[in-house]
Design a protein around this nucleic acid. Structure first.
Lengths: 225, 225
DNA sequence: ATAGTAATATGATATTTATCATATTTGCTT
DNA sequence: AAGCAAATATGATAAATATCATATTACTAT
């Protein structure tokens, strides 16, 4: 099994603040897992006994709302950690995590992490900074949700995915979401999301081939926002 | 000037995790401030050189959106800390803080707090827990913004204020917001907020006297949500 | 107390978004 | 390759919300 001390992925998250010794110890008790596209990593309300470090793939974090829709709150990329908040707050998971592509994740038991959090201030400060940043992002999402139109929000999501997850050689977005998932990110009806994407197509901002979306005019999209 | 070691307010925030010695040191370098209703404590983009501990009063945290509206993201009550996130993230303030009532706040310089954050793991763990909790709340707000109607969100805000800030002997809500501020919390036009409040009045859920709002039927309001 | 200003209220209408219905296309299974 | 289910697409309409206009009421400063 791969070793945390040699894993590049940790450079992208707070685990980089751990000492070599701490990493070796964690490495010896972590477990690796392959998660297929569409599979659930953990579900809302579930008690997590540790955190997940995403080695590869992408997943969505979502929450079921009262009207039965599954609001997507965040997309998680390679390098991110999952479940720190539940672990720190000592609460059950507030969100469900579902793979959008095949994933490889490492599970680190709670006890190991909590210990380091209390004893290694570099680590805890890094986690604090990450959380401060996430809170800022959340506030910005709230403002967007409250003040922007569905069309603007959808354009922003396309730009966000393009910039954070990139596109393949054909310029197709690397993360492939269903129209329903797009709707569940921006908080609208699936038909509305479809309609607006169709409109973007007519305006030459994007083109599609099946579920795949290609960004044709990023500047134009930015003008929508 | 009052002393932090003897201040009850700190029981409600992370400062409770500080040791007696740390409190004495902070007490000696903190400054107290009276802020009148309507005054700004700090503004979006401003660099904060410390954090504020709210001893009395209420303030709103808001962010100017592209369309010129001032989205209110959070209401802050006695006992809360302001500005930890900017301090931890080492960034300028993402939100503006404006007093909704006369306030008394204590300002604690950055250097003092950062030091304790790094050296007192009880303190940093408490801040971490607070932030984990705030993130959870933020996610819930995002889901509500995305999935609920304006009417539902407005009913929720009334319930929230009733439950968190209470009412006076006449059952009038303790926190008095303008209709525009209500609109800026739920993310709607001022007229829409006014209209819905009028509707709530007709339905006997609330009554008003000027800007003051009285909750007449909390159960009925909860049914709206 | 009164004028002037800001906030609240409400009507009329336009725009945005949701819902329901029904094609059409895509991807999958055999 | 055919058949089937799910996803996408689009029209028609309803509902929610925004915008503009204009009263009315409350508050403030003299």
């Amino acid at each position: 099994m791969s070793k945390c001390e040699q894993c590049i992925v940790r450079q992208f998250n707070s685990l980089k603040a751990l000492t070599k010794d701490e990493l070796v110890r964690i490495s010896s008790c972590k477990t690796s897992k392959i998660i297929k596209k569409g599979e659930v990593i953990f579900e809302e309300g579930e008690t997590l006994n540790g955190i997940y470090c995403v080695k590869d793939g992408v997943c969505k974090l979502s929450k079921l709302s009262a009207n039965g829709k599954d609001q997507i709150v965040k997309l998680v990329i390679k390098g991110d950690l999952l479940g720190q908040r539940s672990l720190i707050g000592n609460e059950s998971a507030n969100l469900s995590a579902t793979a959008l592509k095949d994933m490889e994740v490492c599970f680190i038991p709670k006890s190991e992490i909590i210990n380091d959090l209390q004893n290694n201030s570099n680590f805890s400060m890094d986690v604090l900074q990450k959380m401060a940043h996430d809170l800022k992002e959340s506030d910005n999402v709230i403002v967007n949700m409250a003040q922007k139109t569905v069309k603007q929000r959808l354009a922003e999501v396309l730009i966000y995915i393009y910039q954070h997850f990139g596109a393949d050689t054909n310029d197709m977005l690397n993360v492939v979401l269903s129209r329903e998932e797009y709707a569940n990110i921006v908080g609208t009806a699936t038909e509305s999301a479809i309609r607006i994407l169709s409109q973007f197509k007519k305006e030459g901002l994007i083109s599609t081939s099946g579920k795949q979306i290609k960004i044709e005019d990023i500047k134009g999209l930015k003008k929508v926002v």
